[in-house]
Amino acid sequence: MAVFEGPVRADADSILARYPEAHRRSAVMPLLYLAQSVEGFVTRDALREIGMLLGITTAEVEAVASFYTMFRLRPTGTHVISVCTNLACKLRGAEAVFEAAHEASGVVHGAELSDDGLFTVHEEECLGVCDFAPAVQINFCNHDNVTPERMRELVAGLRAGEVPSPARGPAFDSFKAASRALAGVEEVASA
């Protein structure tokens, strides 16, 4: 195995142990997050290896991976910027924020990532933060009431290697790091 080797394999085993022996297929989503945290997106190799770990076909794993927007099947920026444009955010000016995210990051509409490989911009459906619209997530960390100016600042900060402090919770400094937290294999910090 190329992806699930050494410590990553140990993480995979801890994920498998969460689910009943007879239902290990339930581990497919956290395993996809784990693979994404290693390679920056879910590669063909990862799909095959997850299938081997779970005793299902690569196609069955891909059927799951392709169903969800948070699994990326193609090369992805170091940072993923998610901008909600659903109604509550739209009513508060989200479309201009979405534009600003593209301009500032250099991601052309419809492209997977910026030429420098730093950014992916994703149009989100409701992020569940409609009370602080327009809502944005950078590497799945929330930024509240984001204006186009603030969006440009955030992107400039990321370019300069800064990790912006989120509105709530810890900061993840990359899409890979956030994916690792999503796999649930990190020690949880004290409340």
């Binding site: 569940g128 709530r168 919770g169 910090a189």
Partner: peptide
């Protein structure tokens, strides 16, 4: 939901 990453960490704690 996956986007509630922080809230899931609160719950894990």
């Amino acid at each position: 939901r996956g986007e509630y990453l922080w809230q899931s960490l609160v719950l894990e704690r």
